[in-house]
């Protein structure tokens, strides 16, 4: 049941991210990437092999408690920060386009270039 809800949410977020990425409004398109990042992070989380109820500390393990999967968490941890970097880069690009073309509509910018 939980898996199903998780998968549905990941699919929905991913699909919405894709929809946003295809917008002609570049700010919205950039937001689409943010949605994708979140969906992917959730996906990584969902592939964890351990579903314990306590945080992954060796002390918890020593107490005989089942822990959550530390590996996927480590992967997500770095991914979040790098996503921020890429998102900032994207937004800077949007800003650049806005300055240079006085527009943030990709179709209009395209017409200006051609």
């Amino acid at each position: 049941m939980e898996d199903l809800a998780m998968a549905a949410a990941i699919g929905t977020l991913f699909g919405m991210g894709v929809f946003q990425m295809l917008r002609r409004d570049l700010v919205k398109a950039a937001m689409g990437f943010a949605l994708l990042f979140n969906a992917v992070n959730l996906f990584i989380l969902s592939t964890g092999a351990y579903r314990g109820a306590s945080a992954p500390y060796t002390t918890n393990l020593a107490d005989g408690k089942a822990t959550s999967d530390p590996l996927v968490q480590a992967l997500i941890l770095t991914a979040i920060v790098v996503s921020f970097g890429s998102y900032a880069l994207l937004l800077a690009m949007v800003n650049l386009v806005s300055r240079r073309f006085n527009r943030i509509d990709s179709d209009e910018v395209k017409e200006l270039i051609n």
Partner: peptide, 30 residues
Amino acid sequence: DVAIAGMVGTAVFFFTLAAMTTRTTTTEVV
């Protein structure tokens, strides 16, 4: 775009389901 997003979204949905259910997830203590 709605159609494409729907197509991709469902694909990701099944992909995730497949990833989650073809493995043995354990709640046991390691």
